[in-house]
């Protein structure tokens, strides 16, 4: 029947995808990437930490929790704020490069690559409100878009701005200990909007978990009922 010729959004190579009757009439969502690139995404699978969805390794777990989450949950300052984090992929070299290009070089088009992977997972979560980790004003003005917001916009999911940033320094330049000990970095925009609500927070990467836990704590202390988070990578 012929081929549709589009370029892969990641490697820019021509994709030769056969046009079939199904692809013509069922209007399957068009994939933006070639099968070669798709194969480089490493799905998180198997037995994972009940909170942060890290793959569990015998040397780094106690029962259903990884030792990192155990440490968070044993700390009265942090226990119980984050119900669950879902992450899709391992943060391998391929994904590191991809997310860096997306976020730091500002290649918004890659939101179209990443967002479809989240769709199914978001459909399975039950929530009243969905929001993203905000950027500081300066950072947003510099980058031109919020990388997590763009993912939801591509999926045409209505989100609510629930948080703003108080602190503006870059997280990635801090050690784990420094991040955990930071004072509050988020402010809740409207306490009334979140009273008794289940909230999902979306971000691009879960590294130490400190960003999403700070956000979860702020929302919960302001009256939210349950906080779940979702990231592309961890």
């Amino acid at each position: 029947m012929g081929f549709s010729m589009a370029n892969c959004y990641i490697c820019y190579e021509k994709m030769r995808k056969p046009i079939t009757w199904t692809s013509l009439f069922l209007r399957q969502p068009k994939s933006r990437i070639c099968s070669n690139c798709e194969a480089k995404f490493a799905w998180i699978s198997g037995e994972t930490c009940a909170i942060c969805s890290r793959e569990l390794d015998e040397s780094f777990r106690r029962e259903q929790l990884c030792l990192d989450c155990l440490r968070w949950e044993n700390n009265p300052e942090w226990a119980g704020y984050l119900t669950k984090n879902v992450s899709l992929f391992h943060y391998n070299d391929f994904l590191k490069e991809l997310i860096a290009k997306y976020k730091y070089r500002g290649d918004y088009a890659l939101a179209e690559v990443l967002a479809p992977f989240m769709k199914e997972c978001l459909q399975q979560l039950e929530y009243d409100l969905i929001t993203v980790i905000p950027l500081s004003k300066d950072r947003l003005q510099e980058r031109g878009f919020n990388q997590a917001q763009a993912l939801l916009d591509i999926l045409q999911i209505n989100s609510t701005e629930l948080l703003t940033r108080i602190h503006t320094e870059k997280q990635s330049k801090k050690s784990r200990q420094e991040r955990i000990n930071l004072p509050q970095i988020f402010r809740v925009t409207s306490r009334t909007a979140i009273q008794g609500k289940s909230v999902v927070i979306v971000d691009d990467i879960y590294t130490t978990g400190s960003t999403v836990r700070h956000a979860a704590k702020a929302l919960k202390l302001a009256g939210a009922e349950k906080i779940e988070t979702m990231t592309i990578a961890r």
């Binding site: 589009a6 820019y12 290649d107 918004y108 088009a109 947003l140 003005q141 031109g144 878009f145 763009a150």
Partner: peptide, 11 residues
């Protein structure tokens, strides 16, 4: 054309 992309720019 395939190597241009249009997005809602916050700048």
């Amino acid at each position: 054309k395939q190597l241009f992309y249009t997005f809602p720019c916050a700048i």
